[in-house]
Write a protein that binds this DNA or RNA. Structure first.
Lengths: 327, 327
DNA sequence: TTGTACGCGTTATCAT
DNA sequence: ATGATAACGCGTACAA
């Protein structure tokens, strides 16, 4: 690896001049500029970001902490973040937290040890000291905390919409899947749905789930139809569990949406490919990622912000697991 | 951020002693050790990895380059890599290449600028100078190049298996989806399938596809049944396109697997949740990721290796889009 | 317009 | 058992 000294020597100038020319700070004669340029080319010199980072005490690195990239909702988020960051020349140190506090803390620590300039985190503990003590900007993604920069969607409203629409389409014995207890958005969806159901005087059954994993999803689905065989409408905690429910319903010979309607949450890419295609409450995951990155960059650059907690719209996305609404 | 000097001052010793104690190199008296420990606690000191990296000219950072984390095959890979790295205290700088040479090169460059100790890349250009000139270990993942460390699966054999099994199950008018031209594994699968079909004297039609995106997949599927309406067996280039084909077949009122059989490739998580569940050629994605990371770490640590190009097994995974085999 | 010299936080060498 | 100090590669006062 060629260093700035090598370039300087080869170009017959001092390192200061090379530095000035690279960073476009201060004057440098046209001739020497050319010399330096060719020296750089010949040596294939690229500045050492580590040295830069040490000196300036800030890098071009950014930390991204997600629960589990294997959950189909998160790749979209991640991609949105990455695209925006990439366009602004920031790089991403990435980690999965598994919703685990220790793992999360460990990652945050290594982020700061590496001089990252900002962090995007999808955490269940936004109020924890780990974040409060951070002296770099943090944006919570798919999560919120009061007065903290964050990008999230209105889960409660999403739950309400799901309930309203499934009722409007004729379900009367609704089962709601309650997502993992420690995951805030999941609980909000659940609350919204139950709330709306109650307002309409529709009783509902509840199945408690404890993860969003593919493998376990099948279990909840089986349990659902075993315990509540006459369910005619299911509001799932996300599209993965919805897909499992759909799968199980069909396996049991139920017709969807005639016998039982299913509504998911998220609108992950697979939802439209399912058979029948899944009706769901859409979150604009990719946009959320981009927005979070944009917000973080603004924070990093100290841009004045009118708004720092950004709520994204959820939209009822009607496909084939619900019937036509009866007016 | 507290530095090692702060700790030294507080503990009433020199930075050298603190450094020795932290790194467990050289002697340090039990009493001073305790002093230093409390100083560290009180100041919440953690070593600056950037300074370390500058001095040692090697970090604990690792580069991971994938085509597109949004393609459901890659999160599994990524997670495997991350888990293994995490357990060995390595961190990951992550980027999507979009199979784009320039983007790829740009990422590799920033990787080295950040003193990464190794790179895992899923690239279509393993023989390019970018990699040849790298003086840190590289492992190709889901791709290969002669004599280069790599973890991949036998795509050609996978293609052959798919063809053999679809024939054994009675398809006689097979359409093969040929994946993107520049993606090696896709072409190998294609070749394997066509080869086996030919060996059995089964003619086949071909649909050329140019991406693995969800949105476009539907288009190929439509084209397939429009151009070859009497197809009774489809060998897809991966599970995403297979899912699209399945979706389209059902939409057209075809029965699967009775009228048309479908075989995918990869065994992404959604495949088992589809309706009917997708028969596919499985790649052990998570394991591949882990294996690649393990290999890279061995390379980084200069461990003697008996084998550096690791081929993972593909396995025929029978589900509901194929019929029972006729013996 | 250019060069010298210091500091960023750490580790390693060499004295003591 | 401990401390002073030179390096790692870069950017920036400040001097020239």
């Amino acid at each position: 690896m060629a260093t700035i000294r090598d370039v300087a020597k080869r170009a017959g100038v001092s390192v200061a001049t090379v530095s000035r020319m690279i960073n476009g700070t201060g004057y440098v004669h046209e001739d020497t500029r050319r010399n330096i340029e060719t020296a750089i080319k010949e040596l294939q010199y690229t500045p050492n970001e580590v040295a830069r980072s040490l000196y300036k005490r800030r890098s071009k690195l950014t930390g991204l902490l997600l629960p589990d990239i294997t959950n189909p909702f998160f790749p979209e988020l991640a991609r949105g973040v990455e695209d925006e960051m990439q366009e602004h020349e920031f790089r991403i140190i990435f980690g999965n937290s598994d919703e685990d506090r220790d793992k999360e803390q460990e990652y945050i620590q290594t982020f700061v040890q590496n001089n990252v300039v900002g962090v995007i985190a999808s955490t269940n503990y936004p109020d924890s000291d780990v974040y409060r003590n951070l002296n770099i900007p943090v944006v919570f993604l798919d999560r919120t905390a009061d007065n903290s920069p964050s990008v999230y969607s209105d889960s409660r409203e999403g739950g309400r919409i799901a309930a309203r629409e499934i009722i409007a389409r004729g379900s009367r014995r609704v089962t709601v899947l309650q997502g993992p207890k420690h995951i805030r958005p999941a609980q909000d969806r659940f609350k919204g749905a139950v709330e709306m159901l109650r307002e309409h005087g529709i009783s509902c059954s509840v199945i408690q789930t404890s993860s969003f994993s593919f493998t376990e999803a099948g279990t909840w689905a089986e349990q659902l139809f075993r315990e509540y065989p006459d369910t005619d409408g299911v509001i799932a905690s996300n599209d993965i569990t919805a897909a499992a429910v759909l799968h199980e319903a069909l396996r049991l010979g139920k017709r969807v949406p005639e016998d039982v309607q299913v509504i998911g949450f998220d609108d992950i890419p697979l939802s439209r490919i399912l058979n029948p295609a899944l009706t769901t409450i859409r979150q604009p995951a990719y946009d959320m990622g981009r927005t979070a990155a944009r917000l973080l960059i603004s924070l990093i650059e100290n841009k004045p912000l009118e708004q720092t907690a950004i709520q994204m719209p959820v939209t009822f996305t009607e496909r084939d697991t619900t019937r036509k609404a009866v007016e």
